[in-house]
Design a protein around this nucleic acid. Structure first.
Length: 140
RNA sequence: UAGACAAACCGGGCAAUUGCUUCCCGACUUGUCGGGAUGAGGAAAGUCCGAACUUCAUAGAACAGGGUGCCGGAUAACAUCCGGGUAUCCCGGAAGGGAUAACUGAUAGUGCCACAGAAAAUAUACCGCCUCGGCUUCGGUCGGGGUAAGGGUGAAAAGGCGAGGUAAGAGCUCACCGCUCCGACAGUAAUGUCGGAGGCACGGCAAACCACACCCGAAGCAAGGUCAAGUAUAAAGAUCGUUUCUCUUCGGAGAAAUAGGGUUGUUCGCUUGAAUGAUCACAAUAGUGAUCGCGAUCUUUGGGUAGACCGCUGGAACCCGGCAGUAAUGCCUGGUCAAGAUAAAUAAUUGCCAUCCCUCUGCGGGAUUACAGAAUUCGGCUUACAGGUUUGCAGCUAUCAG
RNA sequence: GUGAGUAUAGCUCAGUUGGUCAGAGCACCAGGUUGUGGCCCUGGGGGUCGUGGGUUCAAGUCCCACUACUCACC
């Protein structure tokens, strides 16, 4: 298997799971409050991590939203390994939905990869700590 | 010459690493790996027009409704494009040139024209001008009549201007201009030119209703079709119907008709076309009413699934050349195949070059660009757009020369 | 993606055939009433009618283009 890949099987495709995330997921905010991640940790015999990226239409126009989605996906792809390994050790399936929080086209017309990578990293670190450290957070 | 303007075209390039979509080939452990190819725009946008395509059993007619509106041509079609005409505006001494235009009809009818003004469309005379009669303190005043030349009002005042004419005036008469009608000529036509007549009778608004001419069935790829999975012939309310005939082995079968349905309304046409009756009351046996059942349609509420495949990209397609045409465009020869995703691919990092910005200059630093992201597909329109290339130049701005 | 609709005062909404017309309720301000406050009474301020063109003598209203927002869909 490729190290930094992000294939179909690592993404959430079902509408039901996304609705589940929005209803019952717990939230984590990035260090500068620009991004937000909603996640659910499940016990599973197929451990791993699945992600989705969703940006509200109110944040900006189509070009801007596409760019942000691509940058977040890329940042996840290159920084996913520590989270994946802990999830496999604990036999957990983690579902994550990334969304924008304070980012919008008016304030951040131009997007920089390094900023977003730092934000995504902080999000992943927080989720990883929740998996390994405190099991009380979610009992799904 | 430059700018601006108009038209056409481009709108970062190359290399390396990591990663994604679709397709092809190979391998096996049959869903993974390896290799190769492929991957956003001129507006993909707004969804403003026009089509293709699909469904509505047919895709019909009339009315209603909607759209278009100088003429001719192009086109699959159009509100688009091309050529011509007319009007308005701009430049110019003129000849002429350029820009813009929802550019049919106001003598088919109806309606509206606030305020002001005498009067806003059948001129009903406020001031004024002229005249006749009465009274008079001789300044005027009252009454009848004529008058649209002048004043004032208004966005707009009843053809304009000059001369004659008159009590004062008036197309009352005449010349010129305008308008309407008729004729001739030119043009496919819109229209233009010339000639004659009318004596003006005809204010504006149809992006008010409307009239005339032409066009339009409706909904939209979340259309629609196939498969898989799965629920409940679900509930409430409203309206209407529950008829007739033939055959019969008496179980039933067949035919006709009705209600109703058939992608907005009404009517016609076409097409399709349901049901099992029972009980009670009134009455004269015909029949009428009520309740229950059954059937059809409509409205509201509720339940299930939201997976896969087809539609899905080769087309009124694009490029080069030739011919026809003033042009839009058409025809012919040759060549090319150029995204097809579905919580949704087309990206990220680094280096070099190019461009731009910051800086007095160098060094250096920053940005990868502006507008903007396919979603059934085409033809247009509209709107947004850093920078660059080419062509044009009637007029505009600046500079230089004569 | 496709198809509908809305925009008027700080908020919720009227505005008919174009006209002397930009209005109602709540809110705000001032005065009155009351020992004080509320309720109540009287008066007042506040608007580029989403933006830009066009038609018209005259546009919130008619026509066109744009902007923002809302809703529906198997």
């Amino acid at each position: 298997m490729k190290l930094f890949s992000l294939s179909k099987y690592e993404r959430i495709k079902e509408k039901k799971k996304i609705q589940l995330l929005i209803q019952d997921g717990s939230s984590v905010f990035s260090s500068r409050n620009s991004l937000k991640a909603i996640y659910i940790i499940q016990d599973s015999n197929e451990p791993g991590v699945k992600i989705a990226v969703g940006i509200s239409r109110k944040a900006g126009k189509a070009v801007w939203r596409n760019k942000l989605k691509r940058l977040i996906r890329n940042a996840y792809r290159l920084n996913k390994i520590p989270l994946l390994e802990t999830a496999k050790q604990k036999n957990k399936l983690v579902l994550i939905l990334f969304t924008s929080l304070s980012y919008n086209e008016l304030n951040n017309k131009k997007l920089f990869y390094r900023e977003i990578e730092a934000e995504v990293k902080s999000l992943l670190d927080k989720i990883e700590k929740r998996i390994s450290g405190k099991p009380k957070v979610n009992q799904q």
